[in-house]
Computed example of a mutant assay.
Amino acid sequence: MPSICRSLPSASPAKPATAGEGRPASRRFVLAGVASLLASPLLPAAPARARGPLPDFADLAERVMPAVVNIAVLSEQTTTQVPPELRGTPFERYFRERRGRQQMQGAGSGFIIDATGLVVTNNHVVGNASRVIVSLQDGTEMPARVVGTDDLTDLALLRVEARASLPFVPWGSSASTRVGQWVLACGNPFGLGGTVTSGIVSARGREIGAGPFDDFIQTDAAINPGNSGGPLFNTDGEVIGINTAIFSPTNASAGIGFATPSDLARGVIEQLRRDGRVERGWLGIAVQDYGTEPGARRGAQIQGVERNSPAARAGLRNGDVLVALNGERMDGSRTLIRAVSITPPGQTVRLTVVRDGRQQEVAVQVGRRPPSAS
């Protein structure tokens, strides 16, 4: 459904244990603990470390929530299910033409980034919606227009027309976010309306198989269906992420949520705001990580070159190892893909290439990424 935070497939690395698997594991943990206590001599307890007070998010929530919105979508899809008794009869065509389109409703979250009414959300929230309604925390409802969407980063930009200036929140730097820092997630879980949950940054740079630009912030702040598109705040009230996906065997929060980092989202949103679409650089090569063993020189090795692509015109070949772009070293294929994608089409870059044991510089004019590129 387009209205929920996406749940990762069960094939993801952190396979959830079933109830049957979980109980014996817990029992083994407890028994091992008891055994170790019985086998160890009694020692005086270590003095407890002084702990600072836990944060109070009340002031933060009061400040940022007016800019967090609920999003309702109304879309249409073609229904191909024809009742068996109508198949092969003249009524089958009538059913497909007159009753074959059904409306679907969904709900998601978003946040306002400009007083004039620009709203950020996930692409999978709006999907192919024929109508989008944005609701403020005070209950005000406004129709929204989709300015642009980007499927590769699952981001969308909406615009609402308001009679007065709207409250908005600023972007923060996801690059300066540290594992263990407190965060506040806001949104519309299960369609309940404005809700806040708190937690910490559990990890950074997570790759979850969503696409070539995976670089997610992982958090244990509760994120549930309906939170998609909502903001993840730092304690300064800055948006450092957009809540996008969860890992859960139940499709509800299991303490593992993922947010698109603000440093990635901000550039995409600015392009959508300016042009209504995102244009990315493209070389036309298939690459894989090179030098993954300890101590080896790392880079991206070319596995395929498309005909008439920028890479082909520059003379790049299968087996070439790309180790730097414009002098900046690369530690793998994803680094290369991200660096090229943010390069404006038409700009020339300098690639450092290792071929047959020799290092050389190759100039490549970056092309425009076609919609079909993976």
Rank of each mutant, 00 (worst) to 15 (best):
T116M: 04
A312R: 10
N251P: 06
V68A: 04
Q77W: 10
L272R: 11
I223V: 13
E92V: 13
L31D: 10
I256H: 11
N308T: 03
V120R: 13
S202N: 01
W282G: 02
P2I: 08
I217L: 15
N224W: 02
I337S: 06
T244E: 07
G139R: 03
R338K: 14
R159Q: 15
A67V: 09
V120M: 14
G241W: 04
R204V: 12
A50T: 13
E62F: 00
E361S: 15
D56W: 02
G257E: 03
G22F: 14
S130L: 11
A296C: 01
R93F: 11
A300Q: 08
N70F: 12
A35C: 03
R23S: 11
P225I: 06
S135A: 13
M104P: 00
D356C: 04
L184N: 01
Q365R: 15
P231A: 07
D263G: 08
V278W: 04
V134D: 01
A14M: 08
L283E: 04
R178M: 15
A17S: 15
G291P: 09
Q271H: 07
G108T: 01
R317K: 11
A14K: 02
A265I: 01
V340S: 06
N188Y: 01
L152W: 04
L118N: 09
R27F: 15
N123G: 09
T250M: 02
V125S: 07
Q81R: 14
V305L: 08
G20P: 09
A144G: 02
Q301A: 13
M104D: 06
R273F: 07
F95D: 10
R317V: 04
Y290P: 02
I112M: 05
R131C: 01
V183A: 10
S130H: 12
T348D: 06
T177G: 09
M330W: 14
S372Y: 10
T18R: 06
P9M: 08
G106K: 00
G117Y: 05
V119T: 09
S40Y: 02
R317C: 11
I342Q: 14
D59Y: 00
I242Q: 05
A25G: 12
V69G: 01
G52W: 00
H124R: 09
V323I: 15
P13K: 03
G148R: 04
F233W: 01
